[in-house]
Amino acid sequence: MRISREEVDYLCELARLTLSEQEAEALTSDLDEILNFAESIQSVDTTGVAPMSHVLSLQNVWRADRLRPSLPVASVLQNAPESVEQMFAVPGLLEEE
């Protein structure tokens, strides 16, 4: 096994996911299979090859620092599950743990 159930639990912590027992078991074996499949790339000689994170020749894109209209607050908040005045509202932060 390339990946253990404990590692999957840890990944869930990192990715902020809770999984049912059944789903966690299934995903552990799926991830193992996918990682096995992906193992082929370990055989490629990549000495001195720069990693390519994107295909663009662009390095950076500049624009003039000018004010542009943005979305009205009301339209941004329209999708919020909960909002207070001009803010997104969430359950209490401080009482946890």
Binding site: C12, A15, R16, L17, T18, L19, S20, V90, P91, G92, L93, E95, E96, E97
Partner: peptide, 13 residues
């Protein structure tokens, strides 16, 4: 959810 972290995790699950 009662806390923020619980909300994240449950929401995503």
């Amino acid at each position: 959810a009662k806390s923020v972290v619980e909300m994240y995790k449950q929401t995503r699950d």
